[in-house]
Structures are given as C-alpha cells and as structure tokens.
Amino acid sequence: MKNRLKVERAILDITQEELAKKIGVSRQTINAIEKNRYVPSTVLALKLSAVFGKPVNEFFELEEGD
C-alpha cells in the first residue's frame, strides 16, 4: 500500500515527532508508515485523517497485489 504521509506532513509543516504526539503513537511508528514498513490499523488511519482533514483514501492507496 502506497501512502502520501510525508507529503501531507510537509503540507502541515509538522515533524514526525509532532504528528506522532497528535495521534498518540511513537515517532518510529510514523517513520515505519512513511517508509511502507508498517500498515496502520483503521483506527490509526482515521486519526491521521482527522489530523490531515482529508479522507483516508486521499493519502493511502492500494497497490497492485494488495
């Protein structure tokens, strides 16, 4: 699954640490999501959606084979 987390974070001009604090996870988790090493749960995806003010499918996208 592809994601635009890094771009969305840049638009808000916040660091991984700041985003992590907003949604109650560790900085490592944000980093792992950005690098496609970890796919977040629906709950976490919805929390990200609330921070970015966009629907989940605008920053998460299925890839071929998913």
Binding site: V25, S26, T29, Y38, P40, L44
Partner: peptide, 11 residues
C-alpha cells in the same frame, strides 16, 4: 511495555 507503547509495538 515499551517507552511509547502503541499498535506497531504490539504488532
């Protein structure tokens, strides 16, 4: 628990 326990650490 980890210092910051979250869903990734549980996974």
């Amino acid at each position: 628990k980890e210092k910051q326990e979250d869903e990734m650490s549980r996974s």
